[in-house]
């Protein structure tokens, strides 16, 4: 076992391998933004408190700001830049646009990544469930009702049943 302050790591992002030399202290978030130029993933708090940097690692939604890039050699990483379908908006992005589920747009990549995972997890069963399972992504513009509507719509489009008549919190 060898400890290294710096190393060469292969990051597989959106299906593409990137070999970068990095310091062990570099987070995945800074590696994506500063080294790979993938600035769609945003830094909101850099402390695990806002969800703006949500990406998928191994198909699970995680926070890039709380992940050391060096630990992800050979992991599958997906970011907002990989969410397009045939060069256009994917079904979740389309639902966000149609429901006006964002304003300033800064938290939006994280919201979309979280929504995609939430639907795959099977947590879009009702408006209440969506509210709870989208609560790791703060939207200071507070497009929350529209986000819930967009996630429900996208889940429906992706073949999930959603009960939207359930009472609010």
């Amino acid at each position: 076992m060898r400890f290294d302050e710096e190393s060469e790591v292969t990051l597989r992002v959106n299906g593409e391998d990137h070999v970068i030399h990095l310091e062990s202290r570099m987070t995945l978030l800074d590696a994506l933004r500063d080294r790979l130029g993938l600035t769609g993933t945003k830094k909101g708090c850099d402390g695990g408190e806002c969800g703006a940097c949500t990406v998928h690692v191994g198909g699970r939604r995680v926070l890039a700001c709380m992940t050391l890039a060096v630990s992800l050699a050979d992991a599958d990483i997906a970011t907002i830049e990989g969410m397009a379908v045939d060069g256009g908006l994917g079904p979740i992005q389309r639902a966000f646009l149609d429901n006006d589920a964002f304003q300033c747009g800064y938290c939006t990549p994280g919201q979309v990544m979280s929504a995609a995972a939430l639907i795959a997890e099977g947590h879009a069963g009702s408006a209440r469930e969506i509210r709870e399972w989208m609560s790791g992504n703060i939207c200071r513009c507070a497009a929350y009702p529209q986000i819930v509507a967009a996630v429900a719509e996208a889940a429906g489009a992706l073949g999930r049943t959603v009960n939207v008549t359930e009472p609010a919190p």
Binding site: M1, R2, F3, D4, E5, S7, E23, S24, R25, L68, V70, S71
Partner: peptide
């Protein structure tokens, strides 16, 4: 953040030895 050296532990014994 202070720089640090990083390694993945291959097994429990190695992890225990490291700490």
């Amino acid at each position: 953040m202070k720089a640090f050296a990083y390694a993945k532990a291959p097994d429990l014994a190695a992890a225990l030895a490291a700490i």
